[in-house]
Design a protein around this nucleic acid. Structure first.
Lengths: 356, 356
DNA sequence: CTGTTAGCGCGTTCAT
DNA sequence: ATGAACGCGCTAACAG
């Protein structure tokens, strides 16, 4: 290490009291709009317009700016832009986890629709049991996104208030809350449950076994199924619950345990296709035929649900449509337009295949 | 609607020329640090310190600020904070897609490790074929994150330059680039291929069929396998390639087509466990025994690889460890420390199960 | 331990 | 069609 590596080693003897040799907070080399403007021989406003409303520049001016921007490799600081304009071109997506999330199609659709318009997605992962929802949402509000999309996470009353107070357009998805924070795009989980119940009734099933996740959404579906069955004289289903998403292993082990304990179901309802997949697998190993001996129903219509053996009967939710609707809401709001119908029911589809 | 709802309904008759009744860019109700400071009877700096270095405040002062913050529901504007401090407390994660991505464990780990420290993750989805990598990365650079983590995406030479020029710490993951942009955490795909090749040699396989994705990583693995086999007198494998991730359906159909075309492999190597899963399924339908008639190998060790029938032999990468190492790098850099070994090989593990 | 003050880089009036 | 100047909300010296 050299004893003296350049710069001003002895600032102590600087003359007088320089009123403001300002502290350099940013990296020294940082390229700013002023530098670009100077290099192009225009004002900063012109460079700003070049990026935000190029149509208002004379062609020749735009070309000149373009050239300098390319040559210098200037990338506008969106932080500063956002602070100045209070439009950050960010939307926040709050989901429980990354892993085999049923919500990935929604996030993907949001990102895809918004990327063209220069928007980015900030992720808020709350954990399977929503332990960290409040913290994540606070941190997100601090970033002042142009919109917040909640999917899967169920905010506490306190958090809901903070969201409302923030004034940030908020969209709850994958559900139809009784009292929306702001806007909502989803479907009724209870209605899904009822549809499954009706399907079971049509098939004449009577000994129903439900493998379910623990959240409020899965609970609503369970409730729909059970209500429909009980109201029609079918005995109340047996239930196994798991925290978080029902996995392949969960489905397999739940079925194994139930059978080993003497259960003889004629219908197995799983709260995810993963669980149903595991159930199918366990049944096959035991030589129990599907659907001859027992029907198996899933939820989600994952990519290969139709390619399983036998193909899986399940409920399909169009996560992409949910995402697209959510961004439509956001874009409207961004344009200052008022959204009339603040709740959209995208429905669902019971896809009957060979498994039940 | 009341005809006149307060405020200054007739600003036209304001006296003289107010030098600057500044335009209100932000929402009128926006709560700022100054308002909080005033309400607490302290200076803005004190409120700032309350959030960023509370230990430097007298307990009683902190309590007073705390009370006001709670009562008013103040959430600091991280945009302004980031602009001022040039630390945004954001890290960007660039990945191809959300859906059944092998990288989700890495992103999850990054988010989990960083959430405590107030960091958020911005997502850059580039598409399966990296069409939009450049645009996404530019938009990300504009947000001045404290770090950029590249996983799966393979930036063009041009984009690599922009990343370098940006001065933002950048970590390439899930690979060991010959010429890293900055830092890297990953493993050698070619080495994985060689390990698979060795495993095949040990098992005596000679008619190998490879179902592979199209990207450069999968290509490297394929190359490793092929080289190892050919160097040891095994005929060059047959190959079927698919763009993007190899899915369940891809695996199933590739195997079906290969068999229908007269292929009689004794080893099937898939570039994802999904593909291997599909292959297993197709083989079972055709009454071909695994591993007696043909061995099946996967890649990724997805959650239920060990629960398939038969359990799947595959290569396990610890995506979580990759994510943790990446954030370690970033945190070191954030503290201004220099990172000594800028490339970490996390290795991989060949997990031999019953399928081959 | 606390207050004062000068920018951070940009969008946005308001002139011209 | 372009320029000048202010301030978005906050952090970081520095002074006390």
């Amino acid at each position: 290490m050299p004893p003296c590596s350049g710069g001003h080693p002895h600032p102590a003897h600087s003359l007088k009291k320089q009123p403001s040799k300002p502290t350099i907070a940013s990296r020294p080399g940082e390229l700013t709009i002023d530098l670009v403007a100077a290099a192009a021989g225009v004002s900063t406003a012109t460079v700003s317009r070049f990026f935000n409303s190029p149509e208002r520049l004379r062609k020749s001016t735009a070309a000149r700016v373009q050239e300098v921007v390319n040559r210098l490799g200037y990338v506008p600081n969106l932080l500063a832009g956002g602070l100045s304009s209070s439009r950050t071109r960010m939307v926040a997506a709050v989901i429980p986890t990354m892993s085999n999330s049923i919500f990935s199609s929604t996030i993907q659709a949001i990102s895809d629709t918004l990327a063209d318009q220069g928007y980015s997605v900030v992720l808020g992962l709350t954990g399977a049991n929503d332990q960290h929802t409040e913290r994540q949402i606070l941190s997100i509000i601090g970033r002042r996104p142009d919109g917040i999309i909640l999917t899967g996470a169920v905010p506490s009353a306190n958090t809901r208030m903070k969201l409302k107070a923030s004034g940030i357009p908020t969209i709850e998805t994958w559900d139809l809350p009784q009292d929306p924070i702001d806007m909502a795009v989803g479907f009724s989980h209870e209605a899904v449950g009822r549809a499954i119940g009706e399907h079971i009734l049509r098939g004449g099933g009577r000994r129903v076994f439900i493998v379910s996740a623990g959240g409020v959404r899965a609970l609503a579906r369970r409730y729909g199924v059970t209500k429909m069955l009980v109201e029609n004289g079918v005995p109340e289903p047996a239930i196994a619950t798991f925290p978080g998403i029902t996995t392949f292993g969960d489905g397999r082990r739940a079925v194994a345990a139930h059978l080993d304990a003497g259960g003889r179901p004629d219908v197995i309802v799983c709260s995810s296709d993963w669980g149903a997949h595991g159930a199918l697998d366990e049944l096959r190993r035991r030589g129990i035929r599907v659907p001859a001996d027992v029907a198996v129903l899933g939820f989600g219509d994952i990519a290969f649900a139709g390619e399983l053996d036998p193909p899986l009967t399940t409920v399909k939710i169009d996560g992409q449509v949910i995402g697209e609707n959510a961004t439509k809401f956001l874009m409207k709001r961004a344009r200052g337009q008022n959204v009339r119908h603040r709740v959209v029911d995208v429905g669902f589809e019971l896809i009957v295949r060979a498994s039940g």
